[in-house]
Design a protein around this nucleic acid. Structure first.
Lengths: 218, 218
DNA sequence: CCGCTTCCGTCGGCCAGCCGACACTCCGGC
DNA sequence: GCCGGAGTGTCGGCTGGCCGACGGAAGCGG
């Protein structure tokens, strides 16, 4: 559903030729620190080494997260989005011109970039689909199912999801409000579909029930 | 607002090295003919030579156009979208593997592809922004302004827009309904902002008024 | 232990805009 | 001219979900 949400990569550099990082510089981003804004002149490409970053759009009154970047993800400041540290993170950074030069120098990387960009585009399209076609319950159900696929750990009572996101954060990812997410989760809790597991984790009891809820409303 | 809506290009091949089309085959697409669907196995890259194509998403009950492709635009069937001829069109086509090989062989094309993909992504993001942040009047106003910029012709009474799209088509591009678009256009007509110019063209009298309407609602 | 801050749950009011229905206009074919 | 189909204009009813408000719970520093 969201850009650049590949499974966390144990080796962030798999797929890049040896020495590809020559010319990159290192950079730290603090929690809550702004890395990029729409329309800024500075054009850079970066690869996440550790930590998480939030990619989002903002209007006067609201924010909409497009993606959470994780180690191994590649992105650029040359987009009409904000990028902000969700927690302390460290990056490899390079200017976009130098990066392009690197690409022409190492032709095997071009298809890889196509693949990365393709995945980001797929995710953006998928977000459009959600906003245009699905109501809030379906969006939330789909989100939870994807998370279960990505990071769920099978326990005795069901699938444990370490979301590490607050209600508000989830609402931002889904293009809805804190209140709507809250009331839905509690309703499903009453219905026995899932239950809270501490402050920022969920326990899914009934995955099929979630699947059913993800289909409603054409 | 929409993918791949560059100004119509008098020479669709500007920017490609000579002989780049070697290996492409020619293909005609009839009006209303389906060229690509989500999940199809066939992966191709194509460049539009003439005519227009519609790129869109569909659910059970509704359709949402992402873009209208025009001569010079480049796209791929490897996306979770439908692509359909809006009028008779002709294309250059190549397999995606061969295309990738071409890229590594002609390294100057890689940055160009990055640029194309970047533009498509920007447009997708812009569509997300519209769906998430703007109400229908603002979306319509923005759409008309972009069209005026792209293809408007200054006449004595204002700017003439040859949209070549019906009310329903416009609604599809904006993620709304025929009825909403219709009533807005007529309301603005009554207010003197614009007027109909035959069946599928508009005459914009008051561009600033449109601009004002494009801002409403954060 | 106690205050303070942040996050979470819930309720009711309200409204943008979707939907169905129907009449009208335009246009091409014969 | 006549007919049929496609596109257009308009109206009311209905509802998903946003918004403001407020009280409760959980974490945290002292």
């Amino acid at each position: 559903m969201f850009m650049a949400m590949a499974a966390p990569n144990p080796d962030p550099l798999a797929g890049f030729p040896a020495g590809f990082l020559d010319g990159f510089t290192s950079r730290e981003v603090g929690k809550g620190q702004l890395l990029a804004t729409p329309g800024q002149a500075l054009n850079q490409v970066f690869i996440v080494r550790s930590g998480r970053l939030r990619v989002y759009l903002a209007s006067d009154a609201r924010e909409l997260s497009l993606s959470i970047l994780e180690p191994g993800d590649i992105f650029t400041t040359h987009t009409p989005t904000f990028v902000r540290g969700l927690e302390p993170a460290s990056l490899w950074v390079i200017g976009i011109r130098e990066f392009a030069a690197k690409l022409t120098g190492a032709p095997t990387v071009a298809p890889l970039m196509m693949k990365v960009l393709g995945r980001i585009l797929d995710n953006a399209v998928s977000l459009v689909e959600d906003l245009a076609f699905r109501d809030v319950p379906a969006r939330l159900a789909r989100f939870l199912m994807r998370q279960a696929e990505r990071r769920g750990e099978q326990g005795p009572e069901g699938c444990v999801l370490p979301l590490d996101l607050g209600t508000e954060d989830i609402a931002c990812l889904l293009g809805t409000t804190r209140q709507s997410v809250s009331s839905l989760i509690n309703q499903w809790q009453r219905e026995g579909v899932l239950s809270r597991r501490g402050r920022r984790a969920l326990l899914i009891h009934d995955l099929p029930a979630l699947a059913a809820r993800s289909l409603a409303q054409g």
